[in-house]
């Protein structure tokens, strides 16, 4: 295995494109575990942390561009991100321990392509986009379009994610992410749910995105969840309907972390609870 730490996107792309079996190293919290378990034997590891911009969080068009190597801890210390997208910040903050937070990144969480990745449902709910760079230049894609199946993404050879863009927070908008784990920390999500919504002057939901993780082969955007909320106040029957459609949308498996029945049920419970938090935030209150 070789290790390279290029200084430019172009050099990184060249290295990745030229070597089959090359892997990108940002936070490394998934990559090093796989190296250790001998699940991967890369010929080359390309550390992108020395490329300009990769560790930056910058304001852009009212939203935020987050470099691919920005760690969860750095996001958690950023007042602007916390104000605009607390659900996304909380989601990334749930990944692993304080120590893992010191290194783990949004882009890495996405590229690891685990159906249970915490930050991914939150990014999907937030309608985040990615700037992907590669041999053919750069392109912007929606987060939902990147995971392909467990462990696989739609990125082409030689491509990597350079940054994540969180759009401008809508007025009277709020987001939240909740997951279920057996302990209070250090577990992989058994179910995850991201909700982003906007309230109108009457306190009814005017727009919403509801996403689920760990209940299918990849993150899912539950359109029926948004439909259950739009035009209604986010409480009572609306939440019950939301829970029902989320449970129905879930297509989980039985595994060492949970059962089908449990995951289906809890998908609904978390959708309800996350919506309540997002609604509080949309009203400008803290939750």
């Amino acid at each position: 295995m070789r290790y390279e730490a290029p200084n430019s996107v172009e050099a990184a792309v060249d290295l990745l494109a030229a070597t089959e079996g090359a892997y990108v190293l940002a936070g490394g919290t998934d990559l090093l575990v796989k190296l250790r378990a001998e699940m991967l034997e890369p010929d080359l590891v390309v550390d992108i942390k020395r490329i300009a911009g990769m560790k930056d969080i910058t304001a852009e068009n009212g939203g935020w561009r987050i470099g691919a190597a920005v760690s969860g801890a750095e996001m958690g210390e950023h007042a602007g991100l916390l104000r605009d997208w607390p659900g996304v910040v909380e989601a990334v903050g749930l990944i692993g321990s304080t120590q893992v937070q010191g290194r783990a990144t949004l882009a890495g969480n996405l590229c690891n392509a685990s159906p249970a990745a915490d930050s991914v449902p939150a990014m999907v709910a937030a309608n985040a986009t990615l700037r992907i760079v590669g041999p053919k230049g750069s392109r912007d894609v929606a987060v939902i379009d990147v995971p392909a199946s467990p462990g696989k993404t739609t990125l082409a050879p030689g491509e990597f994610i350079a940054s994540v863009f969180l759009p401008a927070k809508p007025e009277h908008g709020g987001d939240a992410y909740l997951r279920f784990i057996p302990r209070t920390e250090m577990d992989i999500a058994v179910v995850g749910c991201g909700v982003s919504l906007v309230l109108d002057g009457a306190g009814k939901v005017s727009a919403a995105r509801v996403s689920l993780g760990a209940v299918g082969p990849k993150v899912m955007l539950v359109e029926a969840g948004a439909e259950a909320l739009i035009g209604r106040a986010p409480k009572g029957d609306a939440l019950e309907d939301l829970a029902a459609v989320c449970s129905a949308a879930a297509t989980p498996i039985d595994d060492k972390r949970g059962t089908v029945d449990f995951r289906r049920h809890v998908a609904g419970v978390l959708a309800r609870r996350a919506t309540e938090i997002a609604a509080i935030r949309a009203k400008g209150e803290t939750a």
């Binding site: 290790y3 730490a5 190293l25 490394g28 550390d47 942390k49 304080t98 893992v100 010191g102």
Partner: peptide
């Protein structure tokens, strides 16, 4: 590392440059 708490098992030695 640079003041940030990390697991040294999850970082390559080469990254310490």
């Amino acid at each position: 590392v640079d003041g940030r708490l990390v697991c040294s098992c999850l970082m390559l030695g080469a990254e310490a440059e």
